[in-house]
């Protein structure tokens, strides 16, 4: 099972071309970070993965079926999408209603609904907030509510758009645990992020995009040790990797561990 993008292009109705010639494959249980400047085509790419957008060229295949033949709602049941801004997604009067919305909409029986809701609540640590209106919660907790509202579905792939924006150290740790558990359950996670520390600490595969194209796809060094890729995608090495470079210790260091090992 996989999400496959075959030579995909997308042009918005106003004629602006967001992505072209994008080929990518995300396997079950895989974890992929998509990085690049604002406007590089990251959001368009993930919207193509979950059927919010249908390709204007090429083909997107989710678990063997082209998204062109399915409605967005059908694709979204397999590929969940957590928006960058939780306020684009949350609408119910309290957190519990927010999480229960999809199960009720799909007419799941009580037992199934309760099991799925309990799992989503537990994974995201939002149990203390169930009776509160999402609008009254701090942004970081709203983010986890938005994640829970997606995880309650039976999706096999989850897209997280800028999940660390506004998170403090505690939220960051919670997110890391959540990603590990999803991977343990075989659920793939695709993240768009500007947070390179998050990428280096949490991902082993990274896709760099620039001007609507994938310019690198592979293990961390494929992006973080390649000046050409870094320059084109406007990505920075981690601060410590830059220190190693400044000290002429080479450009192969990606993480703090790598740099510690390089210093005599």
């Amino acid at each position: 099972m996989a999400i496959e993008l075959h030579d995909v292009g997308f042009t918005y109705p106003d004629g602006s071309r967001a992505v072209s010639g994008v080929s990518l494959r995300v396997e079950d249980g895989e974890r992929v970070a998509i990085v690049g400047q604002n406007g590089a085509g990251k959001t368009t790419t993930v919207k193509l993965m979950n059927g919010l957008l249908k390709p204007t060229e090429g083909e997107v295949i989710v678990d063997g079926e082209s998204t062109a033949k399915r409605t967005t709602a059908q694709v979204a049941r397999t590929v969940g999408y957590v928006f960058q801004n939780p306020d684009d997604q949350l609408f119910a009067a309290d957190v519990r209603a927010e999480i229960e919305y999809l199960p009720r909409y799909l007419h799941w029986d009580d037992a199934k609904r309760e099991t799925r809701v309990a799992r989503a609540v537990e994974l995201t640590g939002i149990a203390p907030h169930l009776d509160i209106n999402p609008k009254d919660l701090p942004a970081a907790i709203r983010k986890f509510v938005a994640i829970a509202a997606v995880l309650v579905s039976e999706c096999r792939y989850v897209i997280l758009d800028e999940p660390t924006a506004g998170l403090d150290q505690r939220g960051f740790a919670l997110l890391g645990t959540l990603l590990d558990r999803l991977q343990g359950e075989g659920i793939a996670v695709v993240t768009i992020t500007h947070d390179m520390r998050f990428v280096v600490d949490t991902f082993s595969r990274v896709v760099a995009m620039a001007a609507g194209n994938v310019i690198a796809d592979g293990p961390l060094p494929a992006v973080f040790c390649d000046d050409h890729v870094l320059n084109r995608s406007r990505i920075r090495r981690l601060e410590v990797a830059q220190v190693a470079r400044d000290l002429r210790l080479g450009d192969q260091a990606v993480s703090i561990d790598d740099v510690v090992a390089l210093i005599p």
Binding site: G36, Q37, N38, Q84, E162, A165, G166, H194, M196, R234, I235, R236
Partner: peptide, 8 residues
């Protein structure tokens, strides 16, 4: 919070 590293 919503900017890329260069813009930050």
């Amino acid at each position: 919070s919503q900017l890329d590293p260069e813009a930050s």
